[in-house]
Amino acid sequence: MISYQKFRIYIDKFFHVIVYLFSFIALIPFLSIIWTLLKKGLIHVNPNFYTQTSPSATEAILANLSGEIIPGGILNGICGSLYILLITIILTVPLGFFIGVYIHENRKQKFSIFIQYISAIFYGMPSIIIGITVYVFIVKSFHSFSAWAGSVALSVLMLPMIIRATDETLKSLPTYLKESGLALGASYTSVILRVIIPTAKGNLLTGLLISVSRILGVTAPLIVTTLGCSMVNWDITKPTSSITLLIWNFSNNPCMADMVWSTSLFLFIFIIVLNIIAKHIAWKWKITLPHE
């Protein structure tokens, strides 16, 4: 019989081994994803990839047969994503900011608490539900898939993120900041515009960039609102492509498998870069408070 004390030590050692083992196993799939992205995606890194629109199925089949790289690129996806993103930001940021300020300033009121719950439900809402709602309201009413339908869907998805970022930022500011501004006789609007926002601009911008990086990866609602397009489209009322839609389209076409990885790699790197920029801004424009 091992003494109980020795048993405890064995358990502890066993525990350590299990933790190391499981952590290692957990990291493997992620490493595999990155490895595959790099291995299969770097084939297509050439200027054409970013300056040409996506190839048709026939072009792809021919290229596959002759062993060449599939021609064409993802320009329509890049332009579409950016276009939709721009409109989404215009729709979401002012509104989200105001709602965040409202929630923060009226925290205890009944209506505000109700709004906070609604914002929480929005935050966790599956994107496909938002997609089909926009389909019913916009795509069906106007009888066409369109870029702006996609933007509206993404706006509804992005709104709770901006609201939360604004609220968290404001919560991190001490109350005396607002009070000193008001004690100087300033109006509430003045204090928000000239004291609160300049002090917190770093955090707000970071929140925006992180929300943008999450929105860029969204696919499902776009499938039912913007549909996709094989050309670069700047008409807001017509279907547009996006990087994620391209990945979806390519993956549904067995001959375009190579394009899938290259496009995914591009998307992934873009998102990582955005996150790095966001972290850098958070560090550089950190909210510094007096006497810390």
């Binding site: 005396y176 900041l177 009070e179 000193s180 004690a183 100087l184 002090t199 510094t288 408070l289």
Partner: peptide, 12 residues
């Protein structure tokens, strides 16, 4: 005018 307990110049 009011002066508060903790010094709080505007950071921005």
């Amino acid at each position: 005018g009011m002066v508060f307990q903790m010094p709080n110049p505007f950071p921005a």
